[in-house]
């Protein structure tokens, strides 16, 4: 009897080992589901350094340093905005690193800001303003007619309605239609000594009078600067 008892215990041990190994649990059919959260992060369009403005020829030329989202990802475009007093007007939208503001109102003191864009809607924050420049002479439209960049994207009419220069820049043509702007000087006459005033430039000081009223510089007589 004792012998038989021992045999049964051994048998039970074998069964237990098999069961512990999963043999019995394998009988149960089951399925499992899992849900786990993970995350992804987006970047942002960097804020640009202030652009640099200078009078080149008869119109302002604006340059800036390129920015990138990451080492190998450049931004899509740069948008340059002219600031005259409290008025803002987009003057360039380009993939390059400079542009010319052919529609700049003569005689006005201007600064520029720039921001980068990416995709359809991503817009970077505006840079700080550039140095100020003063556009020479009131009659530079003939020199502007071939400049297409500034004509491409007129600002909303509410911003520029009273700006004759902007009106001129909206149209692709030429500015031979400036008869109403009295021009005491012939078109080809050298620009007055309205140098870029680099020394005064660091401040983005608004151009007091002309800006508040919308900056009608082309209709102003010479020397209002």
């Amino acid at each position: 009897m004792r012998h038989r008892y021992r045999g049964l215990i051994v048998a039970a041990g074998v069964v237990a080992t098999v069961a512990a190994g999963g043999g019995l649990t394998a009988w149960a059919g089951w399925s499992a589901g899992s849900s786990t959260a993970t995350t992804a992060r987006s970047g942002r369009v960097p804020t640009m350094e202030p652009p640099r403005a200078e009078i080149s020829g008869k119109s302002p030329k604006i340059e800036w340093d390129a920015v990138r989202l990451s080492a190998d990802v450049p931004v899509d475009r740069y948008v340059v905005i002219r600031i005259q007093g409290s008025a803002r007007e987009e003057v360039c939208r380009t993939t390059g690193k400079s542009c010319r503001d052919a529609g700049a109102p003569a005689g006005g003191t201007l600064t520029y800001i720039v921001h980068a864009t990416m995709g359809t809607y991503w817009i970077g924050e505006d840079s700080k303003p550039s140095n100020a420049v003063v556009v020479p002479g009131p009659k530079t439209l003939s020199a502007q007619q071939n400049e297409v960049t500034a004509v491409a994207r007129p600002a909303p009419s509410s911003k520029i309605a009273s700006t004759p220069s902007a009106t001129a820049s909206r149209g692709s043509e030429p500015a031979d239609d400036v008869p109403d702007a009295p021009d005491p000087k012939p078109a080809g006459e050298p620009a007055p000594t309205v140098a870029p005033e680099p020394s005064t430039s660091s401040s983005a000081a608004p151009d007091g009078g002309s800006s508040a009223s919308g900056g009608n510089s082309t209709t102003q007589p010479l020397g209002t600067n």
Binding site: A26, W30, A32, G33, S34, T38, T39, R41, S42, G43
Partner: peptide, 21 residues
């Protein structure tokens, strides 16, 4: 076409799976 508001954002993504023994 991603919205401008999605700059510098965190997106939560739920991972799900089904399994059988």
């Amino acid at each position: 076409s991603v919205a401008d508001a999605c700059q510098d954002a965190t997106f939560d993504i739920l991972l799900t799976g089904d399994a059988t023994k």
